[in-house]
């Protein structure tokens, strides 16, 4: 039995695998210290699998807090883990787009599932989950409701700014002018989709494509990106948010073989 732990900026994820099958997975809000997040998420995922810590043969950590987890026997970058997890899910995938809480990455894979090109934005909050979080707060909508709400819109509000803070101001201006909340929500999702699509232009982009990370659960962003790219994303067999942790677990499994 192996475990993969992904400590992100907003959430901590863990996946337990046994004989190349997912036994259990867990997602929780990250604690301030990566070590606390790791301990908590590991406890939860072990409970869900009905296993004990002593059953774990290998543990691979990933995410920005990966170097601070004492229980990990190894660690891998998020890029490798997302690629690994997506390829394990579906061997035909050639591009993985991951939109996380604080960064977004586009990863190109070759036929053997190895990373041959990637680009990452971690300098600017635009096009990440953080941007969505700030803007959802500005219009008083829960982050989870932003996707379903935006799907009802027929005329998405126009948002031209790139910077999240400028976008917040623009969103407030729409509120002042009594634009419908659902139209603003759709505008917000589209603006994030646009930023990520701009990033895909900078790498060699092959199809099929899959979308991972917490933001992939937002239908508005997902549909917006599909329209802009003119493709449909490959469906995944598991929760797209655990992809990094899943990839880490696959790495841990390979380390035993």
């Amino acid at each position: 039995m192996v475990v993969g732990i992904d400590i992100g900026s907003l959430t901590a994820k863990a996946v337990i695998m046994e004989r190349n099958k997912i036994c259990s997975s867990h997602i929780m809000r990250a604690r301030p210290r990566p070590i606390d997040s790791a301990a908590a998420v590991l406890r939860e995922v072990l409970n869900a699998a009905g296993a004990r810590a002593s059953d774990i043969e290998a543990c691979c950590a990933t995410g920005y807090g990966r170097l601070e987890i004492p229980i990990a026997t190894m660690n891998m970058s998020e890029i490798s883990c997302h690629a690994k997890g997506a390829f394990w899910n579906n061997g035909s995938i050639r591009t993985v787009i991951d939109i996380g809480g604080q960064d977004c990455k586009v990863i190109g894979l070759d036929g053997r599932g190895l990373v041959h090109d990637f680009i990452m934005n971690d300098k600017c909050a635009a096009g990440t989950g953080r941007s969505l979080e700030i803007l959802a707060k500005a219009i008083g909508v829960d982050l989870e409701d932003l996707g379903p709400l935006s799907m009802k819109s027929r005329r998405p509000a126009v948002i031209t700014n790139k910077c999240s803070i400028f976008m917040e101001m623009e969103v407030l201006q729409h509120l002042y002018r009594r634009v419908k909340i659902k139209d603003i929500a759709a505008g917000i999702n589209l603006s994030v989709a646009k930023r990520v699509v701009a990033l895909t232009k900078m790498v060699s982009f092959g199809t099929p494509v899959c979308l991972t990370g917490g933001v992939s659960k937002n239908e508005g962003v997902r549909k917006g990106m599909e329209n802009l790219l003119g493709i449909t994303f490959q469906p995944l067999t598991c929760d797209p948010q655990i992809m990094g942790a899943l990839g880490a677990a696959v790495f841990a499994q390979e380390s035993l073989a």
Partner: peptide, 14 residues
């Protein structure tokens, strides 16, 4: 170290 105002806020908190 963060250039982005949003990320600088997270950096300050950490």
């Amino acid at each position: 170290t963060s250039t982005c105002a949003v990320f600088a806020e997270s950096e300050i908190i950490s």
